[in-house]
Design a binder for these strands. Structure first.
Lengths: 244, 244
DNA sequence: AGTGTTTGAATTGCATGCAATCATATGTCA
DNA sequence: TGACATATGATTGCATGCAATTCAAACACT
């Protein structure tokens, strides 16, 4: 899912996307100090596009910077994740409510149904490997994106996009769980999806809202595991603690 | 209310704040094309800080830019305002709920009470002039900021800040109303404030949430008036607004 | 030894030059 | 006369140089 419009030949956009990926995938350890010249030589461009990109990522809160003192990769605490997930749940709930209130086109309904069917197959297959989780995540994202589309509120869509860029989102949640719990999580998730579709079909705004809120809070319970997982991935001693 | 941390001697920050002000105050007409060199000579700096500032304002959606084709001041339609206000209402509702659920310190409660008392005086005075509206707006903002503080969710605070930067927010709403309607609006607003405080005191999360949601939707009814007012204001050739 | 000061390397912040891109106006041909 | 191609001017995008600031280590001093 592209966040911005079509990727131009533009170097700044490319650098921004590249850096975002590096951070989100954990290639740049949290808390790591990044210098303009360092990134410039890493990505083979001059400091100018780097500078622009860092300003953008600062707005996205993926890096934090102090004036005259450069930037460092943001460190997400457990509390940060909790807060972001809560905001996200509220916004997703709003999307579900709007979707129920405004109603959906036949095509949109078909899309939701298709997502649910495909998830159903996936779960029924009993598979529990990397590819399955990946696929689950993709369909899940598509389902939510469709509801957001039905909600038809551009400001809401933007706000949601802004709370989306977390390191290790969604799919990785499943990796850190034992097999049976992963299967259980997918089943519960799927049950929510069905209820959501039902609520939206019947224009039950409040029900849709609170179903979605709860649904979007699922990651909350596993946030601690995620943090551990992240820290484990960051075995490299991120230059001691805070410094600033 | 400062959006960023303390203003440094930094030129880019200054330019960003300056441009933001120009746009929010309507000195730069909506839809106006802005060139880097134009702004550079206007603000007496080189293109570099302008460039950074525009990138920031683009993230804030105050300007929109196409690659290789520069930027223009964003044009807010009635629909845009409606959508933003709805998102804002949802987020403010969340803040109120969290505030009720988490509870407030004595000092925070005192602040809320003081806001309410001061608003009460203001309304009782029956005054209906520029200064009154200004003061009303200030106290109102303080009231909401305090609730957001009580909610104690940094991600939520950030999301709210991001939906705050609208041209002509809050206070100007009152200017465009006839005297009796303005007084009525302030009274209704005040009644909501009292109920909100009561709900938060009693830890009634759901009640607080929906009271706040409705409360934050008040501007919705007047959005059309706002748009008219904005368009009217833009017939004046901008430079008149003091500044330069 | 501990604290305050100074000096220097590293880095950011800003200005400017140049190439690439886009918009507009001009010219050519059917 | 109209449509297409071309050329020119303006503007953006990027690279680089230089001044200003910061951080850290060495030094002097109490």
């Amino acid at each position: 899912m592209q966040l911005r419009e079509a990727s131009s030949t533009n170097s700044t956009e490319a650098v921004t996307a590249r850096l975002r990926e590096l951070i989100l995938r954990g290639a740049l350890p949290q808390g790591e100090r990044v210098t303009e010249s360092g990134l410039a030589s890493l990505l083979q461009v001059s400091r100018t596009p780097i500078r622009l990109a860092l300003a953008t990522l600062q707005q996205e809160e993926l890096v934090e910077g102090a004036p005259n003192r450069g930037f460092r990769v943001r460190r997400f605490t457990l509390e940060d994740l909790r807060e972001i997930i809560e905001v996200r749940a509220t916004l997703e709930g709003m999307a579900a409510r709007l979707a129920a209130e405004k109603g959906m086109s036949q095509q949109q309904e078909d899309t939701l149904v298709r997502c649910i069917d495909e998830l159903e197959e996936l779960i029924a297959s009993g598979a529990c490997d990397h590819a399955t989780f990946q696929r689950f995540s993709e369909i899940n994202i598509a389902f939510h994106a469709t509801i957001t589309e039905i909600a038809a509120n551009a400001a809401l869509t933007r706000s949601l996009e802004r709370t989306t860029n977390l390191p290790f989102r969604s799919a990785p949640m499943l990796y850190v769980l034992p097999r049976d719990e992963a299967l259980m999580a997918m089943s519960e998730s799927q049950r929510d999806h069905k209820r959501l579709l039902d609520a939206i079909r019947q224009c039950q705004g409040a029900r849709a809202e609170f179903l979605m809120r709860e649904h979007a809070l699922i990651p909350l319970a596993k946030a601690a595991l995620l943090i551990e997982h992240m820290d484990a991935a960051l075995t490299i001693p991120a230059a001691a603690d805070g410094t600033f």
